[in-house]
């Protein structure tokens, strides 16, 4: 167990290093263009040359990368050209807003997905199963920007009950959170629900469930005492791996509703070639994903006794 974790941790560090190298390579391999992006198109040749020397861009590429990485690890992330602010000040503000949005969505996705998934998976092929599966496929098929359009058309244009933009300029307003959260929940809950359903259906087909049934255990007891614990192992790990999708979805949703969160920040940074900000945002999103992958591995090992006690598949 300990060895497994250490190996995973080493691998994760390797991945992070490679990612940081790739990001730096793509964004800063050409020092001259970095100078143009940072001090502007209308700067003179001498100004750019001066800026490059001042900021250590005369060094060879690898040395620059190592210096950048060292500064980055210590928390010196440079400053954003567009927002005229330190990235380390900017990023936490925007991240916390996204945390509110994504957290609310996640808190709704998980219970919804489990309730519907279990209801569908208990009896494979039943009417409830078919209806829920169809809804899950349907909602997952509508891309975020499209469901944002549909929901806005209904609630903003037609009924006029919710605001169409979520800029939160006058402090926190929950009404502005409703539509973005709905969009994210609609897109993501179906996938998790289908996972739960598949896992539940598989467990319900196991011989030990039939044994319980023949012993005369009540359906509720079979589902909650016997089936659920085994059926939840796979979905719980899958939920963590949903987070990369959640981040992508949040990005589109934030841009649509002009919600000032991490997604909008990254999008704006990319459009404005705001190098330092792109680097910090990209690294943050990769960190989040790698962490969720680690947590998912950890959960899987703790929930699955075969792995916990080091028993391999064939031996059990």
């Amino acid at each position: 167990m300990m060895r497994f974790l250490l190996a995973r941790l080493g691998e994760v560090l390797g991945v992070m290093l490679s990612v940081s190298f790739l990001i730096y390579l793509v964004l800063e391999h050409d020092a001259a263009s970095v100078a143009v992006k940072v001090i502007g198109q209308y700067s003179t040749e001498t100004q750019r040359a001066l800026w490059l020397t001042e900021n250590g861009y005369d060094a060879p590429f690898l040395q620059r990368y190592v210096n950048w990485l060292w500064r980055f690890v210590r928390g010196d992330w440079g400053s954003s050209v567009h927002y005229r602010e330190l990235v380390s000040v900017l990023l936490p503000q925007y991240l916390s807003r996204t945390a509110i949005l994504a957290g609310t969505a996640f808190a709704l996705i998980v219970p919804l997905a489990f309730i519907f998934g279990i209801a569908a998976g208990v009896r494979e092929g039943s009417i409830a199963d078919r209806v829920i599966s169809f809804i899950a496929v349907g909602t997952t098929s509508v891309p975020e920007f499209a469901s944002a359009v549909f929901l806005s058309a209904i609630f903003v244009f037609w009924l006029g009950v919710l605001p169409g933009a979520s800029m939160m300029t006058n402090g926190f307003e929950w009404q502005q959170l409703v539509l973005p959260v709905m969009v994210i929940v609609l897109y993501d809950f179906g996938y998790v629900a289908r996972m739960v359903r598949a896992s539940m259906a598989e467990v319900m087909a196991q011989p030990y469930i039939r044994t319980a049934l023949m012993k005369g255990a009540s359906p509720a007891r079979i589902v909650f005492r016997h089936a659920l614990r085994n059926a939840l192992v796979a979905p719980i790990t899958v939920i963590m791996l949903q987070i990369p999708w959640l981040i992508s979805g949040v990005l589109v949703t934030e841009v649509f509703f002009a919600y000032k969160g991490f997604g909008t920040l990254l999008y704006q940074a990319c459009l404005n070639s705001d190098v330092a900000l792109i680097e910090a945002c990209a690294m943050t999103s990769v960190c989040v994903i790698v962490t969720t992958q680690l947590i998912s591995d950890l959960l899987y090992t703790t929930l699955n006794p075969r792995i916990r006690f080091g028993i391999r598949k064939g031996e059990a």
């Binding site: 992508s248 990319c270 070639s273």
Partner: peptide, 18 residues
Amino acid sequence: NVVLSFPVLVLYILIIVT
């Protein structure tokens, strides 16, 4: 693994913008 540790959309945006 390296590529999969990016959120897909972030990867797309980075590539297209570059």
